[in-house]
């Protein structure tokens, strides 16, 4: 194949593309750069690079408490929404019952509801039920609000699975329960991981719902938000850089898992005449 494309592209297009990418990534680059800048946010151009802000960050206990809180909430939200989402997806995929279309829309509704509405209504529910606002209420809020994400991902996964495999399992003497654990769930592994990562990320940076349901313990986004009201510090830049790095790592892991499964499918395709 020729390395030159047959049609010459306008240089304007290249400039336009560069501008778009700059618009998306320049702020990120600035954020990362300033986290290493000795003179803080105000000092431009950054002349002296330093790890001081990271040292300060690692000694900052409230930040780490909030990171831990966020991890707890996100982990719990993943477990809760995957469990309930899987049940909803199974119902949508396999069962036929009156009001199924309505059920489907109701399950998917939180995807498009503004966070403020979800947060406010959950707050009213919590108050009515007499619960104290705490990390648990945040966890329940995230978990229920993200069921729709889990349901969509897992439903798509179930639609792709070959039902004959479950029939083969039953045929070989496995009970429906054994079939679920040994065949259905392993087939859904990829969808479960993908949905889990997505929900984890969404929960980690959720603000609107959290804002209504938070008690005394802050999550990381709320901690950052609270500090920003006292001015931007390079320490915030440092923590944001770390979040960015973790997010990229998660995406790479997810991508690798996905490529491995696609690789197997591609091999299978090549085998066929």
């Amino acid at each position: 194949m020729s390395r030159h494309s047959p049609t010459r592209r306008s240089p304007l297009l290249a400039i336009y593309a560069a501008l778009v990418f700059a618009f998306i990534y320049l702020p990120l680059a600035v954020l990362i750069l300033y986290s290493f800048n000795r003179d803080g946010v105000g000092g431009f151009p950054p002349l002296h690079l330093t790890l001081d802000w990271y040292r300060q960050l690692f000694a900052d206990e409230p930040i780490w408490d909030s990171v831990l809180n966020s991890l707890l909430v996100a982990g719990g939200a993943v477990a809760l929404s995957l469990t309930l989402g899987l049940l909803a997806a199974l119902a949508l995929d396999r069962a036929s019952f009156p009001g199924k279309a309505l059920f489907r829309r109701l399950v998917l509704l939180p995807l498009i509801l503004p966070g403020i509405i979800t947060g406010l209504s959950l707050l009213m529910l919590v108050v009515l039920s007499g619960l104290h606002l705490s990390l648990l209420t945040v966890l329940l809020g995230h978990g229920t609000a993200l069921i729709s994400v889990a349901t969509t991902e897992l439903f798509a996964g179930l639609q792709k699975t070959d039902r004959a495999q479950e029939e083969a399992s039953l045929d070989l003497g496995a009970t429906p329960w054994q079939t679920f654990w040994r065949i259905t769930l392993p087939n859904l592994k990829l969808s479960l991981v993908a949905a889990g990562l997505l929900i984890f990320t969404l929960s980690m940076d959720e603000i609107a719902v959290t804002f209504f349901l938070i008690g005394r313990d802050n999550t990381l986004p709320l901690e950052i938000w609270g500090r920003l009201r006292r001015g931007i510090t390079p320490e915030i830049n440092a923590v944001s850089t770390l979040i960015f790095a973790v997010s990229v790592a998660l995406i790479v892991i997810w991508y690798r898992i996905r490529m491995r499964s696609i690789g197997a499918e591609a091999k299978q395709l090549l085998q066929r005449p």
Binding site: A164, Q165, A168, S169, L172, P186, N187, A264
Partner: peptide, 13 residues
């Protein structure tokens, strides 16, 4: 009773 399925339905994992 056991079945050999049309597209075999082997367990890929």
């Amino acid at each position: 009773v056991n079945t050999v399925f049309q597209n075999y339905a082997l367990f890929p994992h």
